[in-house]
Amino acid sequence: MSLIEKIFGRTEPSPPVRSVGSAAVARERLQIILAHERGDNNEAAPDYLPALQAELMQVISKYIRISQEDIKVQFERQNKFEVLEVNIILPEK
């Protein structure tokens, strides 16, 4: 490095544009995955849902012939409400 360079700094081309760096990719990936994970609210869905679904299936099967796919059990959190939605599709006669 010459003395001139030492004093005035190297004349380098302008610094690389930020958006071409991998940090921008990292930011975008994080925003997408976290929006997904926060939206999912993994913790909100209680882990008894599959058992609940299986037991409902047993009870209903005593009276009506239905299949596993005809029972949908879903849990949702909307603001301050927790909604347990049970949807049973009865077979056509």
């Binding site: 610094p15 690389p16 544009v17 930020r18 958006s19 071409v20 760096g21 991998s22 940090a23 921008a24 990292a26 930011r27 994080l30 925003q31 976290l34």
Partner: peptide, 16 residues
């Protein structure tokens, strides 16, 4: 590294 665009900036992390 942040200046080179290789590392998330503090503002990125704060925003997320």
């Amino acid at each position: 590294r942040v200046e080179k665009g290789e590392m998330l900036s503090v503002n990125d992390v704060k925003e997320i």
